[in-house]
Design a protein around this nucleic acid. Structure first.
Lengths: 333, 333
DNA sequence: TTGTAGGCGTTATCAC
DNA sequence: GTGATAACGCCTACAA
């Protein structure tokens, strides 16, 4: 910066001002400075700026995993929202581990993020303490916690699964099995299972057909293995409700290879409305979740909290994300 | 830090040393300081550290899109490698746009990354200039450029597609169609197409059956629409080679709904070995690419370049990633 | 519209 | 093993 200043015959301060689009500098001086900046390939050092302004420009963001199109899409939507604001995303993935989440937050806090975005999957007590002490807005996504730390953007997985289960019962299914992960610290999956159980019990039906298999995120392959043991798991069931579309597709694939017809012999239902569920044969009945919407709403919220000075009043604490049931060929009408 | 120093009855410098695990401090003093650090919830400010040490601890990383399991997996593998090193990833996605890539690099350089990891899909001249002037190691991934800027981790898409095409010809296919994106700044897709053309021409066959449709990344839906126009596109073809598994699955789905048999009436081939290709029916012949391997190798390389002081000699400029042909049910033996 | 002085929170360096 | 001092590169605050 010194070099630029010298070449332009001004002080470093004037260079600094010329680089901020709103700095009070004469047009002529700014033009001259910017030309020299380009010629000298000067790139300002944001660490120094951060230190001075006490604004890092960072949005700390966690996801359980990138290896899941829902999370990837929501991140992508968020990062697109962030682009014009000049804020940068600091991304980490927890691998569905609360301990890893804690470590990540600890290391990200050293970067002094201006806001923290993370999934709610249950946090360790220390994580909660760290988040509160950081004295920075917190946005919890996907599942809505009972005791939110700050803002929330998401929906109730419990209600969504309950709604689908109830709709299935209305369509005449009674012996519904539920497929989910074996390790269930994963609150969202657990919430869906609980919603299923509640709906079944409310209808006076038994919710004992529980298949727990595979670590989160449960995969197509896991679903295939479950489906391959049809007679063991599903001999007396009339419907298989899977915690996500991936295992639903796997189950379908396994049933097909055993000549079991869907939906004539048994129905298959997923969760998430991934692209594959629309193009499998039969197409898969599922719960549609607006993943991009979560990223988008989060981006809006970040903007209102950090960028738009005059839009900071009356910001709701919660943004509800749409969830819709999609009935397709894998269930009968 | 001042507060911690006062409470411990030492200078700030000693606190600083106590926090670096290798700093020369007596065990007793360090223990006392760390206790106070915890009690006061002191979190060091890494911007200040960066300014002083001139080491940011950032790995600038670009991907075309997260909305693609290959890239997501490679990023996840890289970030797992990075975790124990204390390096943090600064992630951005280019959306397959060289201009967006340029803007992202420009903004990331302000953070003074210690290394830059990005896909090679063709760069703008200014991007190349920026990367060279940054004076920081550069790792180009996925496709191997003719003139690399620094290190490379990937494979030749041209060769991979050529190999598959040749193998298809050996299996008796002669009238092979190729499905790829309509906008082809996407060098990897273009490289695959060129490899296909070369193989066909070398065998004295015509490569005129070219379907270009959909913006990158081409989707299942795009493939479905292409497959739906079977008689128009594929009436005289015996095989459909798709630039990725996603459209291959879509094509398959569309053919099935028209009662066209695969592989009896026509074969379908993909690229990438995504999970869906193993569980569709029929399963899809494809080119297997080790996406996690790319992230993993990149992580190794980053470690050798930035962390392991005594492992910096004779580092190869290129790491080749395995590519294998997977013949499945969607082609005949 | 421009310049000067000083500080943001760390660590490198050198002295003890 | 510990402390004092001076940077690191930018920006706030104030003065001209």
């Amino acid at each position: 910066m010194e070099d630029v200043a010298r070449a332009a015959g001004v002080s470093r301060m004037t260079v600094s001002r010329a680089l901020r689009s709103d700095g009070p500098v004469s047009d002529e001086t700014r033009a001259r400075i910017l030309k020299i900046v380009r010629k000298l390939n000067y790139v300002p050092d944001q660490s120094a700026g951060t230190l001075s302004t006490r604004r890092s420009g960072f949005v700390a963001t966690l996801v359980p995993s990138l290896n899941n199109l829902h999370f990837a899409e929501s991140i992508q939507a968020l990062s697109e929202q962030l682009e014009p604001t000049g804020l940068q995303m600091l991304l980490g993935h927890t691998d569905y581990s609360a301990e890893r989440e804690e470590r990540l937050i600890e290391s990200m806090l050293k970067r002094r993020p201006e806001i923290i975005v993370l999934p709610f999957d249950g946090h360790t007590p220390r994580t909660i303490k760290l988040l509160k002490q950081a004295n920075v807005p917190v946005i919890e996504q996907w599942e809505v916690p009972k005791r939110p730390i700050g803002y929330t953007v998401g929906f109730s997985n419990w209600q969504a699964a309950r709604k689908m289960t109830t709709a299935l019962i209305e369509r005449g299914y009674q012996r519904i099995a539920f497929v989910s992960e074996s390790e269930d610290a994963w609150t969202r999956g657990a919430a869906r299972r609980a919603g299923f159980e509640d709906a079944m019990q409310s209808a006076g039906l038994s919710a004992h057909r529980m298949i727990r298999f595979g670590k989160p995120p449960i995969s197509i392959e896991d679903g295939f293995q479950i489906g391959a043991q049809y007679s063991e798991h599903f001999a007396d069931a009339d419907c298989i409700f899977c915690v996500s579309d991936a295992p639903a597709f796997g189950v379908l694939s396994a049933l097909k290879s055993q000549q079991i017809r869907v939906p004539e012999d048994i129905a298959v239902v997923g969760f998430g409305n991934f692209e594959v569920s629309r193009f499998s044969s039969p197409t898969i009945t599922t719960v549609e979740v607006d993943a991009r919407g979560i990223g988008h709403q989060t981006g809006e919220l970040v903007r209102r909290l950090l960028v738009d000075e005059n839009d900071r009043d009356g910001i709701p604490r919660h943004f509800e994300i749409d969830v819709r049931l999609r009935f397709r060929e894998s269930t009968r009408a």
